[in-house]
Amino acid sequence: MRAWLAIAAGIALGVGVAWWLGREAPDATSRKQARADDAAAAQARETRPSLYRWRDDAGVLQITEQPPKGRRYERIDRDTPAGIRVSGDAATDAD
């Protein structure tokens, strides 16, 4: 009867050690969540309609719907945010 008890205790100990070694640290979980949030934000940014601003060989400014191949470009959102944004100080009276 004691042999079965030793076997059961050994199995329980093995399962406990496997669980302990297989779990992730809390900081690793938070880092994974931060990477997932960054990836979701980047994917959302990529799905917005946009235009691409770049310069050709002659230095002429080009704005196209497709990014140029092998050139630096700036991505511009096509849709502007709704509403009016005001920033800065109130206008001063010029007398």
Rank of each mutant, 00 (worst) to 15 (best):
M1F: 02
M1C: 12
A3Y: 01
W4C: 02
L5P: 00
L5E: 10
A6S: 01
A6E: 12
A6T: 00
I7A: 00
A8Y: 07
A8M: 11
A8I: 03
A8T: 05
A9N: 06
G10M: 09
G10E: 05
G10H: 00
I11H: 12
L13V: 08
G14L: 09
G14T: 05
V15G: 15
G16K: 05
G16D: 11
V17D: 07
A18E: 12
A18W: 15
W19P: 03
W19Q: 03
W20V: 03
L21F: 08
G22D: 13
G22I: 02
G22W: 07
R23P: 00
E24K: 01
D27C: 01
D27L: 00
D27Q: 02
D27A: 01
A28E: 10
A28R: 11
A28D: 10
S30M: 02
R31T: 00
K32C: 01
Q33A: 04
Q33N: 03
A34Q: 10
A36Q: 13
A39G: 04
A40T: 09
A41M: 11
A42M: 15
Q43V: 06
Q43M: 06
A44S: 11
A44E: 14
A44R: 10
R45D: 13
R45A: 14
R45C: 06
R45V: 04
E46P: 02
T47V: 04
T47E: 09
S50A: 15
L51S: 07
L51C: 05
R53T: 06
R53I: 02
W54N: 09
D56S: 05
D57R: 02
A58H: 13
G59S: 01
V60R: 15
V60P: 09
V60H: 15
L61G: 04
I63V: 11
K69A: 14
K69V: 07
R71W: 10
R71F: 01
R72G: 15
R72K: 15
R72N: 12
Y73P: 06
Y73S: 08
I76L: 13
I76D: 09
I76S: 13
D79Q: 08
P81G: 05
A82I: 03
A82Y: 11
G83H: 14
I84D: 15
R85A: 07
R85N: 10
G88V: 00
G88T: 05
D89V: 00
A90E: 14
A91F: 00
A91G: 11
D93S: 14
A94V: 12
D95Q: 10
